[in-house]
Computed example of a mutant assay.
Amino acid sequence: MQTPAKAFIVTLVASVTFALGAAPASAAPAPVDFAAAAAEVVQPPAQTLRTQQEDVSANTLDSMLKMSDVANAPHGFDVEKTIAAAESEVGTSRPTGWSAPGECIMSAQRWILAGGGKWVGSGDPVANYAGATRLALSDAQPGDIIQYENIASPTSWVTGVHTVLVTGVDKDGTLTIIQSNSPGGSGLVTKKENWTPEPPAGFQAVVWRF
């Protein structure tokens, strides 16, 4: 009687051992280290808005902010063609937004380029005028650009920045200008006569000549 009982026990133990070893699917899965797995995931780089040209350096900025005393410096393009291009757009409107054609500075650049001007700068309200001559308001002539510039932070695109093209100078010192996106967001091109710059508080009107 002892031999069959012993054989039965051995057989039972072997069966249980084989079942546990041969059926791992029923066993609890190995724990996963999610922290380690996440560390292996390569995160995409954050997207940043970059302009065609980096902001001007401190030294270049100081140089560009210096007022030129060459009031009679000639324009490097056909002023009449530029003014004609601007005149042809008066009363029309275009989309607005970053670098959109209805923005004031983009429109002014388009008109200067139509006259053969080399407006090649980009970036901030100062870097845009690389290659141009900075003049006092009293020196403004047809074909010049007037830029409303923030005094404390001239390289910032802040509310109040505006760009217009001078198309005429009156004997009383007032100007005729063509501008775009006034009122803001309209993308509308308008012509103003007997115009005097009225920059917002904290801004100044600067003349740029290409």
Rank of each mutant, 00 (worst) to 15 (best):
T190L: 03
D144N: 13
Q52H: 08
L20G: 07
P101W: 01
D170G: 02
D78Y: 05
D139F: 00
A22T: 09
D139I: 01
A28K: 06
V206M: 08
P45I: 05
A130R: 15
F8Y: 08
A100Y: 00
T163F: 03
A108R: 01
S26L: 13
R110D: 07
P44N: 13
A85F: 07
A14N: 04
A36F: 02
P154Y: 06
S15Y: 03
A86C: 08
N128L: 14
C104K: 07
G76A: 10
P29E: 03
N59L: 13
V42A: 14
I145T: 15
S122Q: 13
P197A: 10
L175N: 09
Q109K: 14
A30H: 05
L113Q: 06
R94Q: 05
T92P: 00
A5L: 11
A23E: 07
G116T: 02
N150S: 09
E198Y: 03
D139P: 00
W195P: 01
V161K: 04
W195Q: 00
Q204T: 11
E149I: 06
T82H: 00
L137K: 10
G102Q: 02
W111R: 03
V207Y: 11
L61M: 13
A35S: 08
T82E: 01
V166L: 12
H75P: 03
T176G: 12
P125I: 12
E80C: 04
Q179I: 00
V126I: 15
D170H: 11
V164M: 12
A152C: 05
E103W: 00
D78A: 14
K66W: 07
A140G: 05
F77R: 12
E40Y: 00
C104F: 14
T176P: 01
A73W: 04
C104R: 08
T17Q: 09
A22I: 06
K6W: 00
V70S: 15
L49I: 14
A130D: 12
S180I: 03
V206A: 07
D33N: 15
A152R: 07
W195S: 00
E40V: 10
A100T: 01
L49Y: 12
L165P: 05
I9V: 11
I178T: 03
Q109R: 13
T48L: 03
A22F: 09
N150I: 01
D78Q: 11
A85P: 00
I151A: 11
I105F: 06
N128H: 13
K118R: 15
P154W: 09
I9K: 10
A58F: 15
M1L: 10
I146W: 02
V79K: 07
T11K: 06
V161W: 07
V79P: 07
A152E: 14
I83H: 04
L135N: 08
N59T: 15
W195R: 02
A23H: 08
D62V: 05
T176H: 09
I105Q: 09
S122T: 09
E54K: 11
D139R: 04
T174F: 14
R94P: 01
I105W: 09
N128K: 13
T3D: 06
Y129H: 13
S107L: 07
A37D: 12
G160K: 04
S180W: 02
A85C: 03
S153Q: 11
M1V: 09
C104E: 11
Q52E: 11
G160C: 09
L113V: 15
G117N: 10
